[in-house]
Amino acid sequence: MQFAILINSDPNQSPAVRSALKFTRAALEAGHTIQRVFFYQGAVTTASDMLLPPQNEEKVGELWSELAEKYKLELVVCIAAAQRRGVWSEAEAGRLGYKAHNLRADYTISGLGQLIEASVESDRLVSFG
């Protein structure tokens, strides 16, 4: 079966990003496919590579990167939600005159159409947070 995954909550305020990771890993290990993982609302901060949690805490954004590399997952961050919350790709930052950019490798920034498309083209939408 093919799943679309939607994550809505800020990883510092909710375990949703981590629960979604466990679900996605279990789905892939069971032989299912993931159409797309879409980060929306507060969850977009997962994709920032300028977060520095204390050394004994895992970086959940990095865990998603590892899973994405292993299974060639598409990790998409909503552009409007990301701009509100300070997550910028190099291209978007350059286009709008911002000096810094912080989007992790393995993530792409795109529009909400990607969420709708994923939910229509997959068998199930599973939302977290």
Partner: peptide
């Protein structure tokens, strides 16, 4: 926002 973008589909 999701509803309005989704309407195009």
């Amino acid at each position: 926002d999701v509803v309005l973008i989704g309407a195009a589909f």
